[in-house]
Design a protein around this nucleic acid. Structure first.
Lengths: 170, 170
DNA sequence: TTGGAAAGTCAACAAGGCTGACTTAAAATT
DNA sequence: AATTTTAAGTCAGCCTTGTTGACTTTCCAA
């Protein structure tokens, strides 16, 4: 019941990696790894009145300086009201600057302030350290596979967003 | 500043996959992929008065039938009070059965009911389908790398939990 | 027989999602 | 020039899921 392709029939390549058991291991790997993925920044954030949502905003503003609110909204996949709460705090605390658009004055372009950059760097560094250790332990072949599978797991729309973020150095 | 190992010095193997840029791509891949990972079950759950927390409980009870509350607690990494709220709903709705321990009567052993199995299977199937498509598209080599990197990203304690879940068919 | 462990419960709170309704300013269209 | 649409922001209220802290009941084990 529910088992597909787990029998390596003579003549077919081994499809053992597609057994339900293997798929479940993949699911559990995602679950536990995501916890590790967020653990370090979360620990840093505890010292502030910020949470994971603030981290995400800082990350993507840093990644695409000058991005508009609407843009950020579609990357984060949350509602305007939800993002606004987070953004308001960051702007009030002088971590993020909101500049009126030059061409279109309805738009606001978001930038990190010096202070915002410092926190972003701090969070990012913690997260990159863990990623670096994992990448180094697994090796370049594994990293390539890691990214291939993750990309294939995204919705088409997310994959578009993902590929849009410039990847210098690839 | 903050750049490590991106220069492929003569004599060193290529460490290009450890540039900050590559690490950031990895971080973003995790972010977008996790959204995809949860999207399908979340959609199903919308028809019920359950959320992701209920899904996780169902998953791990299905995975380790007869597990105790304490056990589940340490796997899920939430507080007793938080889990209790979820578990109470599942038991009241007859999706989960809580049996008093035979050896140690303080313990409760958790099992899915017929009804619980049905929902679990539904959720699991949706999630496995996406995972299967991704695995198939990426191929067995990539899947191996995917799991290697994720395992390396876990905290030691989580990795222990992860490896404890039996992996028949590996 | 007593101390500690497992489970369960109540209350109160916070973060971060959501919907709906509405405003303001500016751009775009008619 | 008038109207419609878009971008941003706001208020209010709700839900889920996490947290602490305090306390009870049951029962195993020293």
């Amino acid at each position: 019941m529910g088992q597909h392709g787990e029998v390596s029939r003579p003549g077919s390549e081994s499809l053992l990696f597609l057994t339900d058991e293997q798929l479940k291991k993949g699911i559990e790997a995602m679950f536990f790894a995501y916890r590790g993925f967020t653990a370090d920044p979360d620990r840093i954030l505890e010292n502030y009145s910020y949470g994971r949502a603030h981290h995400r905003a800082l990350h993507f503003i840093n990644r695409s300086p000058g991005t508009t609110v609407n843009n950020l909204l579609s990357i984060l996949g949350v509602t305007k009201q939800s993002l606004n709460r987070v953004l308001r705090a960051l702007i009030e605390d002088d971590l993020v600057e909101s500049r009126v658009g030059r061409r279109d004055k309805r738009e606001r372009h978001l930038h990190l302030t010096e202070k915002g950059s410092v926190l972003e760097r701090d969070l990012s560094e913690a997260q990159r350290n863990r990623m670096r250790v994992a990448f180094r332990a697994a090796g370049p072949e594994a990293v390539s596979g890691f990214r291939q599978v993750l990309e294939a797991m995204m919705d088409a729309e997310m994959r578009r967003q993902y590929n849009r973020l410039k990847d210098a150095g690839t």
